[in-house]
Design a protein around this nucleic acid. Structure first.
Lengths: 266, 266
DNA sequence: CCTTGAACCTACAGCTACGTTAGGTTGTAT
DNA sequence: ATACAACCTAACGTAGCTGTAGGTTCAAGG
């Protein structure tokens, strides 16, 4: 017959739980084995092993050691446990969603970096947090814009998203290098032309018109919107760059009809 | 022109980051705004807001504040970042898998509890950790058994899994209440009959034969196997119950042919 | 019997990413 | 002048451990 007691080292090897952690569980009152009366060495029984297994299991399900301590006291698991499990499941679902978003974001960022090489950290961060808050952005956008427009913007394919992000990076890069030049500079004109073409990929004419309407809001309203956007998407441009961009864009839109670029891209 | 500096309270409201956290980031050197020379109040610039956004973003991707601190020092994000991102993605994938297993386990446990009511904690824990370690079990099983058999056991539907777990709970419950009775007791015979019928649902005749072979291993080998099984699935039965079960099962298998139960269930 | 080394003990410090509380100062409105 | 909000520093608390120091116990070899 096999021996019925184990030293802390044996338990550690058997279960993979570190000795220090076993000490810790003892301290916390979760698992308190007998102690040898003279040496003080801990003596684990088969029962103790089962308790340890329960601790590991409940920990795996995400319960706190505190709760586990409470659960271990109860001999049987009854319906009350179901509630705990449901709550735990909810928590895990949330964690999972966050992880999924982070993962998708990382993957897109890698793709972006691989195709674009070195990227200014402000630009990259702006794009990353825009990916990250896509869901909130969408909910927010639905308050201000027509549902169909919003749907069109957000329900594009992964490749289209990547293309759009690449275009954004290029655009921001150019804004940063061209800022200060006159509105009729050839490079500036070229940049804006490219930008509107990129937009055309994700938006059709009518949607774009709807979208441009934002420009015609009251000062008050557009300031509010800007503030709210700022909350989740930091602008990668400096104040000077932003002002310059607004100016050259205005004069560009005065001269040309947006439809030109739309039809070109189709 | 809007003001270009903000107090800590304004920043907190704008970004949702608590004041304490901002203090903390200051302490850690992550975000150190100017300080008013006399009052000592922190003065955040637009630049600081961008830095804060970067911190939030990188935190969302799962990086530690320490790493973030290092990243913030670098002006541009180059190829080194891709490695970090890949590693982070790997970590997140692992987290995600653990969560998914935990979620599946919880859902099955809820289903089990709902259909069985109160369950002895030892039994429930045994079943939960068996769900939890399904993957390892499978890998382990493939070392000892024929691949086809293993595949058959593990690739059953969710309902079948639930049925099997229900049967297990019932079986263990009965073992615990009948332990000590003679092998020819009617209830004992009935229990064993039910048990083999339940097995038949997940295994066909040939597979079962293969499986039963384990009983014919050397002492040495079967002890080893038991030890390894113990590592992830604690036995819900006491030593006495286990011994009793082995005994009545042996005498049961001597009397009857396994095929009887298999054909009955089909 | 003595020594060596592994295994064990207690006790305290440290980690992450903050939250909480205490006690004091500054800024602003009335 | 006074109230009160907003800010400051400093220190302790949290979860779930890990690490280290300094000392004891146990088993084996010489």
């Amino acid at each position: 017959m096999a021996k019925e007691t184990y030293s802390i080292g044996e338990i550690s090897k058997k279960t993979g739980v570190s000795i220090r952690t076993l000490h810790f569980y003892d301290e916390k009152g979760l698992l308190q084995p007998e102690k040898h009366p003279t040496s003080g060495h801990r003596i684990y029984s088969e029962e103790d092993i089962k308790t340890l297994h329960q601790i590991m299991t409940l920990k795996f399900l995400g319960f706190s050691l505190d709760k586990i301590g409470g659960m271990l006291k109860e001999r049987n698991f009854h319906m009350g446990l179901i509630d705990s499990l449901r709550m735990q499941a909810k928590k895990l679902e949330e964690d999972k969603e966050r992880i999924e978003i982070a993962l998708a974001t990382i993957k897109r960022t890698i793709a972006l970096l691989e195709s674009e090489g070195e990227v200014d950290s402000n630009i990259l961060m702006s794009i990353i947090s825009s990916m990250q808050t896509e869901k909130e952005q969408r909910e927010w956008a639905e308050k201000y814009f027509d549902k169909n427009v919003v749907e069109q913007i957000f329900e594009i394919s992964e490749e289209e998203k990547l293309e759009w992000e690449k275009a954004s990076v290029k655009f921001y890069k150019q804004v940063k290098s061209l800022a200060g030049r006159p509105a009729d500079d050839a490079d500036v004109q070229h940049m804006l032309r490219e930008f509107f073409s990129a937009i055309a990929v994700v938006l059709d004419t009518e949607s774009l018109r709807e979208f441009v309407k934002v420009g015609n809001l009251t000062e008050e309203d557009s300031r509010k919107i800007e503030e709210e956007i700022d909350r989740f998407v930091p602008n990668p441009l400096t104040k000077e760059e932003t002002e310059w961009l607004e100016q050259v864009m205005d004069s560009f839109l005065e001269k040309y009809d947006i439809n030109e670029f739309l039809s070109k891209s189709k």
